[in-house]
Write a protein that binds this DNA or RNA. Structure first.
Lengths: 156, 156
DNA sequence: ATGCATGCAAATTGTTTGCACTTCA
DNA sequence: TGAAGTGCAAACAATTTGCATGCAT
């Protein structure tokens, strides 16, 4: 049985029902390489099954999140993404100017967790991280102060 | 002139008007040790000046954010906090179970920035960070898997 | 058959915006 | 004076919830 079916099975073992909606949502998250928003998941589900409601998507996502089958990454700015926990740990570098997003391997952050544990007794979830900043193209004037000169009065 | 007045001055120098509302919002953020939500700021402003509208608070916060006088920290779960940039760099350890929040000195994260810069050409904003996980009291069963056994069906 | 899960619609929350009026510079 | 800033109300988007019906177990 393929990946998402395994999770589906676990779902049932936990005492939850295995509905077509849940299967499809699971499959979509499983198949997608990247990080999907609730809206995107809803769109894709509807391509196969036009009657699925967005509330069902949210309910399912919340369930999967609660059971820790998926992670929720809040990229800020009303941009929440979901993906499977076992997709390998990686993080996101997000440019605050152009919005571009880059992957960051786990290695750089890995040393952090044990230190937090020993120093603060805090077991950090370092599965997913969103780090903001300026990407190479958006910092023409060096790492510091690159953003001080925003637009003029007109609100961003 | 005291701290917030300095910023107020800079505001004017940038060509913005110095209104009582802006002064008060600035003063409140300045005085507060911690991290305030837009709603909290609004509450406090109203104690002195009951007619200030929440939209003015948001507009002012967005302005101050754009000028980089304050930082916005998105703690996820619809919980956005604001504070002065020069309050010293520190980060937050937030327990996903009990919601408690602990401060984390900058030192642990400091080495990250230069590495991100050299490896990815990415100038990270490491002023403020929110790291989720389980605090000491909420992980009775060791650092791993401590959360797998959530509540039963009833939603969280 | 039983009750969890769904669809639908309405409610909620956080945030933004249009517009006429006020006020700082 | 005149544009920037404000208050108000309405618009908005994302997410949640109540309720009657439907379907997995």
């Amino acid at each position: 049985m393929t990946g998402h079916a395994t999770i589906a099975e676990s779902l049932r073992e936990e005492g939850y029902r295995l509905t077509p909606q849940r299967m499809m949502i699971l499959a979509i998250i499983y198949d997608s390489e990247g990080h999907l928003s609730a809206e995107e998941i809803h769109q894709r589900v509807r391509q196969q099954y036009p009657f699925v409601d967005i509330s069902t998507v949210y309910r399912t996502l919340n369930l999967l999140k609660k059971l820790r089958f998926i992670t929720e990454t809040d990229l800020g700015d009303e941009c929440v993404r979901y993906e499977l926990v076992d997709k390998g740990r990686h993080h996101h570098l997000i440019c605050r100017q152009c919005g571009a997003s880059f992957a960051l391997e786990h290695e750089l952050l890995a040393p952090l967790a044990p230190r937090l544990l020993e120093k603060y007794g805090f077991a950090a979830d370092l599965d997913h991280f969103a780090i903001f900043g300026l990407c190479q193209q958006c910092r023409p004037e060096g790492p510091a102060l690159a953003a001080k000169k925003g637009q003029q009065h007109g609100d961003a």
